[in-house]
Design a protein around this nucleic acid. Structure first.
Lengths: 194, 194
DNA sequence: TGTCTAAACGAACGATCGTGCTATTATCGC
DNA sequence: GCGATAATAGCACGATCGTTCGTTTAGACA
């Protein structure tokens, strides 16, 4: 990897970390350059615009999410076990201990770009739909007798994750993780019944 | 009401509307003044600082939330019916048709101030805890035999609301409302069983 | 090692940010 | 209606924003 590509990755890495809490509008190129101990213009030379940097961050985040949440679960056997693994990886992703990102950047951007059209929103929505589709397929495999309810399952599972992030990051409720796991188990047992 | 108090309310009103989608950092006093067809300094004279304006917005939002969600439900009989009314009002609040706020400002601020200490975060957290406590009490009244599970119920119900906002505002899923209602009914029937 | 190209820098741009100050205008009690 | 006072406007401030420029430093390959 060339020198330029290396620093470009470092920029994206640091920018991604800051974006989790500050959002894409909250990060500044000057502040970023300061965090990386380099000049603002030197940093800017790696991207055509701030929006191009934001898109690069989002693309990198999507890749990391798949790498951290989806992919490792594929080692598990198809069905409930795989679904459970994805959920646990998802909670880990939200906690951010392993990715040192404290929080889920997609939840930050979902708020920021709910009412703001443009290429960033488009990519974000596309990635979210892809994620929901993937979850839906996992649910169909886990509950083959209730394939038509997989979309509803996805809706509720995402809700558990969102509630977890809010309880954990904002309220700082120490029982948030336990509550999320318990909610997931109840959700599962509901779709297993009959 | 004096002239000053009137325009102060208009400022807060417009600022609140913009804050839902842009967040508290995203609103600018210049832009706000432009939207209200008044000078930036004329607007600024009503508040000691931008943060004071933000606090005023949040206080007003809390008051409106109670007025729109909590209070009307008190007309319903104690128990499940009242709990259901609160949930429905909550969904209305998130949709924002009646408050013309498109979206729940608390969800926007929850993201923005998760990792940003200060008086705004303090007030936001306090209001959220109050909201959770209120929901918990409603759940205890609705399911008297499962009083120790009321906190878990609250966690999951908030998750349904969060998932609804995401599906409705970001993904624009037309079945979001139905999914939320269905999730709530399943949640209720779980706590009613036995 | 010398040369060419890539990478980083420093300075400056116009614009906008939040925040003061002073002056002008409108409101309200007598 | 007049005078005191509240409300709004105008202007400028230092700072920071994203962006562009020309220059200098560093890396990569011959």
């Amino acid at each position: 990897m060339s020198k330029g590509e290396t620093t470009r990755q470092q920029i994206i890495n640091e920018a991604m970390r800051q974006s989790v809490s500050l959002g894409f509008e909250g990060i500044s190129l000057g502040g970023l350059a300061g965090s990386l101990a380099m000049s603002k213009s030197g940093l800017y030379a790696h991207f055509k615009s701030k929006e191009a940097l934001q898109l690069a961050i989002l693309e990198e985040a999507i890749a990391r999410f798949i790498q951290a949440v989806t992919k490792p679960a594929m080692a598990k056997p198809k069905g409930l076990e795989r679904l459970r693994a994805v959920f646990m990886n998802y909670l880990d992703w939200i906690q951010g201990d392993k990715t040192d990102l404290d929080g889920c950047i997609f939840m930050t951007l979902a708020q920021e770009y709910s009412g703001k059209p443009g290429p960033i929103r488009d990519l974000l929505v596309a990635s979210q739909q892809q994620w929901r589709t993937a979850l839906q397929q996992l649910a169909e495999q886990a509950f083959p007798t209730k394939r038509q309810d997989a979309e509803q399952f996805t809706f509720e599972m995402i809700g558990v994750a969102l509630s977890f992030q809010q309880s954990w990051k904002l309220i700082k409720d120490p029982s948030a993780l336990q509550r999320a796991q318990q909610a997931f188990e109840h959700l599962i047992s509901r779709y297993q019944s009959e």
